[in-house]
Design a protein around this nucleic acid. Structure first.
Lengths: 332, 332
DNA sequence: GCGCTGTATTACAGCGCTGTAAAGGAGGAG
DNA sequence: CTCCTCCTTTACAGCGCTGTAATACAGCGC
């Protein structure tokens, strides 16, 4: 049998509670006693029983990290960082895949869940702002990502998408490109990344041609490939640069362009968004906006830890950077 | 406060233990009683406290899933399936990233870990067969992947790599290709995928030219790009097909080929291995061997559940399929 | 020395659940 | 009608830990 707290206590000649205090780093333990206890712990190979601790503390030590799909590279890489950071917070991370379905996201939010959770970090897709507002109280929640509106009712961690969109577009303009197309899943005026694109054009004194702000109608590479392909095939002149709201779309756009004989970056420069972690093996490698995932993970967990039942929602911004690769390199 | 078992018992007018029996689906509960209890559970919104259950049962309900890196697409997609399947087994999955470091893998194996685990599913990279053999007893372990030797001392789930390599190569041969190059991380004779490649050539009555079995010296796309690029640049004739041991290598190979003006698949057909989930956005999309990840996850968890302390190691094989995409399509 | 303050340590209940052993009841055989 | 069996339900201890309240002790000023 594994040694228990009592075993250590007996071996060290102190009470169970003192051992507990040492294990948990409490103050008011004499150095001499601490050493005695640590020696006994070491000798017996004691490690605490988490289930018992959780039961006694009324917490589970488990947080949920919920994303639409774990096998989407952006989420996978974010999950990896979340795991690293959670370790430093002493949390076990339980992953959930919601498929972006509102129902699955709601179930988590409202604690309809077998295990007791100490908190949830979620990248929502289907939730409405009202869903978030009306959620079961008492379960700390931090939202990630760009689903608009929800951030008013819960803590939110993200990057400044508008600023990032501006930086990406300015990069294209700095290369001398003037016909900069934008591709985004929806035609929504509220896509902050595209608003940043508009900001950059405006700041450069260029008109924003809404005809070359194309909605792809979906998030997949194929959606962008089809959208841009159709546009080119219907006789429109090719742009000299493309900014896309995600790397997936960028890769689809690259397919559409290359399959029509256009060279990247010589004819068309392309900038993506997200820095999903396979860019180095694609041809060309993608220039992209790289959110600081470590910062996102850390901020989210801090916010989760510091959340108080009645408190106002907090909005935190993580930094980002522009990573220049082949799809815009060496052409200025 | 959340309702407890006693609250439900009181509401239903039965004992706590009877409620427990209903919740756990025990036999010998009269239908009438069961209904009464279920109604009370429903009315109060009762859900069991996992920490308490685990404490009482002496298990944690948590298994570890350890991979080198969670943000590598193959592992991410496997993790996603593992999560799905674990849910049906009633397990919470705790992810670990070992970085492929033997030390980190050993720590997990020998239970040097804060939380108590009910089992480990690991894709090892640094472990030696002896490490596995001499591990701490009593902690169920299932190994995944292709690290040779370790499978003798613990349960193992994988696909038949040799057969898969054969199928992939036969596909290239069936397209009429005869100069089929192979790229693998190491020059090891024990790479089963490459042995399958050799099998296919031999079965077709073709000689195996070990000069075009190239070791890339690494797992990354860049490794394959450099290896194949150097080979081509030193005046060797281009092969008419390339089989690579992983998709990453295939993508690197594609870069090397395309950058030198070769067309895929017209000049060179390419087959990868793993079916990492971004193939649809690359140009060209990759023909590849797709391991049945759902089967791998399910088999691994079944093996974990059924493992008995003294039992002999079990070796299980999951199916795979060949997914034909642009890198070999429409050229026969 | 005496009482006081503050630090160091202890005893003990209880977190919510399940396993065990034993009691209660229904129904059939004798 | 009694005894026995088998099904159903119950009481209760205990899983290993932490919070609370109580106690022991050391050091200080007067």
């Amino acid at each position: 049998m594994r040694p228990r707290l009592t075993d250590v206590a007996e071996a060290a000649g102190v009470s169970m509670k003192t051992v507990s205090n040492v294990v948990n780093g409490a103050e008011h333990v004499r150095e001499e006693t601490r050493q005695k206890v640590l020696a006994a712990i070491d000798r017996l190979g004691y490690r605490p029983n988490i289930a018992a601790r959780n039961l006694a503390q009324g917490r589970s030590g488990v947080i949920a990290f919920a994303v639409p799909q774990l096998d989407r590279p952006y989420f996978a890489s974010l999950a990896a960082r979340m795991l690293d950071e959670a370790e430093t917070f002493g949390w076990i991370v339980q992953f959930h895949q919601t498929g972006g379905r509102r129902e699955a996201e709601l179930a988590l939010l409202n604690d309809r869940h077998p295990a007791r959770l100490d908190g949830i970090v979620m990248s929502p897709l289907g939730l409405t702002p009202e869903d978030v507002r009306d959620r079961a109280p008492g379960l700390p929640l931090v939202l990630l990502g760009e689903k608009a509106g929800v951030e008013h009712h819960a803590d939110h961690v993200g990057i400044d998408n508008r600023d990032a969109g501006r930086v990406a577009t300015e990069h294209l303009l700095s290369l001398g490109r003037r016909q900069v197309m934008a591709l985004a899943p929806g035609p929504r005026m509220d896509d902050e990344r595209i608003n940043g694109y508009r900001d950059a054009l405006a700041a450069a004194g260029l008109p924003v041609d809404e005809d070359i702000v194309l909605p792809t109608g979906g998030l997949r590479g194929q959606d962008a490939e089809r959208t841009l392909g159709d546009w080119l095939d219907s006789g429109h002149p090719a742009p000299d640069a493309v900014f896309t709201a995600t790397d997936w779309l960028a890769m689809g756009a690259v397919r559409a362009l290359v399959l029509r004989g256009l060279r990247i970056p010589q004819d068309v420069a392309v900038v993506g968004f997200d820095d999903i972690p396979y860019d180095l093996a694609t041809l060309p490698t993608l220039t992209t906006v790289a959110p600081d995932r470590v910062a996102i993970a850390r901020l989210a967990l801090q916010a989760l830890r510091d959340q108080r039942p009645g408190g106002d929602p907090v909005r935190l911004q993580a930094p980002f950077s522009l990573v220049v690769r082949e799809s815009t390199a060496g052409i200025s």
